[in-house]
Simulated scan of single mutants.
Amino acid sequence: MPTLVLNPTKIRELFADLVIREANSRLYNEIEQWADKVDISAESKHSLPPGYHLLRVDGRLGKLRPDGFEIVLVNELTKTVVYYNKVLFSGQLDMNCRPATQVLVWRTTDSRHAAVLYGLAQDVFFNYILDRYDIILSDNYQTSEGQYFWMRQMSNALTLNYHVYYYRLMESKLDPIPDQDSLDGLTDQIWSEDDGQTYHLAVISKIKLPAELKVEVQE
């Protein structure tokens, strides 16, 4: 599983372009002017009130991430980004699909946006990303809120009869998590402040994965 980030200074560094108001405004303006974007609110099946736009932004991550994209929720009244999700793809062997990885998922703490943000991350997760890319891997770094989000989605995935796994990258070991009791039993193993946990991943898949699966995780 990913490294669990609890230090407020580290969190601020990771999310600086979103947390700092001036930087958030610059990001909002850049996205507004970016040509290659499309509204995905209908695909996410998340109802949005006037003034909000859920966008998929392609091409802004540059040459190092040519097939990655961003999902952002912007508010045209406050002119801010209120939700951000960077989606990258991890190469894997012997399979004809690409697993997606959510990286540095963030949402604002501004209470004015609380109602519209409720359930958004889950809808994006299942209705947009997983619907298109079959597999989602956990991201490299998460805050404590991100930790609980992933635990909820793993539990939801089990309820929906998806396949849930615990993957140890250095050992190429893919352990299935068949039920909630098994998931509960792993809670104290799969999150840690230890940097080594970067190489432990959660996997949610619509298809059954082979035990010998090897995943190349983007840095």
Rank of each mutant, 00 (worst) to 15 (best):
P66Y: 03
A115T: 13
S47Q: 14
F125S: 07
R98E: 06
V38K: 15
T80D: 11
N96R: 14
L61E: 03
N7T: 04
L54G: 01
V72S: 04
A23G: 01
Q147Y: 11
K86D: 12
R65Q: 12
Q147H: 09
L137N: 15
Y133I: 03
L61H: 09
L27S: 09
V103H: 13
P8L: 06
S111E: 15
L104K: 14
N140M: 12
T108P: 11
F125G: 02
I31E: 05
F69Q: 02
T3Y: 10
Y84H: 14
E22D: 09
W106T: 01
Y84A: 10
H113V: 05
E70C: 10
R98Q: 13
Y118G: 12
E70F: 04
A100D: 11
W106S: 00
R112P: 10
K45G: 04
Q102L: 15
E145T: 11
E145H: 03
V87L: 06
S90T: 12
H113G: 06
A16C: 08
G59P: 09
Q102V: 14
R65P: 02
D67V: 09
Q92E: 07
E30L: 12
P2L: 06
I129C: 03
T80P: 08
D110A: 08
L77A: 14
F15C: 06
P50W: 07
K37T: 06
L137A: 09
I71P: 04
R112E: 07
L77V: 15
I11E: 02
I40C: 07
T101W: 01
T143P: 00
K86W: 06
E43P: 00
E43G: 01
Q33P: 05
F126L: 02
F89G: 03
V103D: 10
K79W: 05
W34Y: 07
Q92W: 11
H46M: 00
D134C: 07
I31T: 06
V105Q: 10
E22R: 12
G68T: 00
V87C: 08
N75I: 04
P2N: 01
R12F: 00
Y128F: 15
L48K: 06
P8Y: 04
S138R: 10
Y28F: 10
L117H: 10
Q147E: 15
N24A: 05
H46V: 03
D110F: 09
N75D: 13
T143M: 02
E76K: 13
G51D: 10
D17P: 00
I11G: 05
L117D: 08
N29W: 04
V5G: 03
